[in-house]
Simulated assay, not measured.
Amino acid sequence: MATVSGLALETATARLGGRTVLDGVSLSVGAGQFVALVGPNGAGKSSVIRALVGLLPLSGGRALLGGTDVAALSPRERAGRAAYLPQERRIAWNLPAVEVAALGAPFLQAGEALERARRALAEVEAAHLADRGVAEMSGGERARVLLARALATEAAALMVDEPIAGLDPEAQLMVLERLRARADAGQAVLASLHDLPLAVRFADRVIVLDHGQVAADGAPLEALTPDILSAVFGLTARWVEGPDGPLLSAGRRAPSPVHS
């Protein structure tokens, strides 16, 4: 698996704050694939991504980038193999957007980095923000700039943690279209998402996490079956065909009766 995968976890186990956050997780994302990582809050989605970029040490198993154990790579080598967009969107300094985006290409000469940053800003429809300070932007505008920073890396793998959280519907679609395009161009793309219909619409595969374990991994509708939606998400649900793809018709599963 490791030799052909853009990124992979092999029976990965990790603890955080005394709690097991990954429990024998195995998964892979190959070049040219867009894989959506879904699951309830606390299921381990961010932990998977942080383990893959070397920010969460493993107590067992391996994390691999391009077939090489992440633990054996230097920070510079990791940065060259994988771009990472965390959930946190806070930017400490009021830098122009183009300079923030250029941080995604730190190993290029300054002029080349800025040129790549401008291309990435245009890719996320934010070219008009290039010279504006990020502290003067809305949250949605800053989210575009930070995505541009990740895209500017142009690494073989791209990992993004909740990239559409807090965005308006049009911006959510734009982000997912860009991630889909990056996968179609050959990158290995892994994105954690909460919106299940959008995951089904854009991803090649869906990996469902539950309590730090893989509950399902497959084509979107094969992974998100009614049984999985019930067991993992607590939903009584079925998929119906909509004009732009499958829609989720869902309600909360009735809670178990409490006996005195």
Rank of each mutant, 00 (worst) to 15 (best):
M1F: 13
A2D: 13
A2E: 14
T3G: 13
S5N: 11
S5Q: 11
S5C: 12
G6I: 03
L7V: 05
L16V: 11
G18N: 05
R19Q: 07
R19F: 03
D23Y: 08
G24P: 10
L27P: 08
L27R: 01
V29I: 09
Q33L: 10
V35P: 01
L37A: 01
G39H: 00
P40R: 08
G42C: 06
V48Q: 03
R62C: 14
G67K: 05
D69N: 12
V70Q: 05
A71W: 08
L73N: 09
S74R: 13
R76K: 12
E77N: 09
A79E: 07
Y84M: 06
Y84A: 04
L85G: 00
P86A: 04
Q87I: 03
I91R: 12
N94F: 08
N94K: 11
E99D: 15
E99K: 14
A101M: 07
L103A: 12
G104I: 05
Q109R: 15
E115R: 15
E125Y: 11
R132Q: 10
M137T: 09
G140Q: 04
E141G: 13
E141F: 07
R142L: 13
A143T: 07
L147P: 02
R149E: 03
A155L: 05
M159Q: 05
V160H: 00
G166V: 10
G166D: 00
D168Q: 07
L173D: 14
L176Y: 06
E177W: 10
A181Q: 12
A183R: 10
A185P: 10
A185W: 09
V189P: 07
V189W: 02
P197K: 01
L198S: 12
D204M: 12
D210Y: 09
H211D: 15
G212A: 04
G212T: 01
G212V: 02
L224S: 02
R238S: 15
E241G: 12
E241C: 12
P243R: 15
D244Q: 15
P246W: 10
L247Y: 10
L248S: 08
G251R: 11
R252I: 11
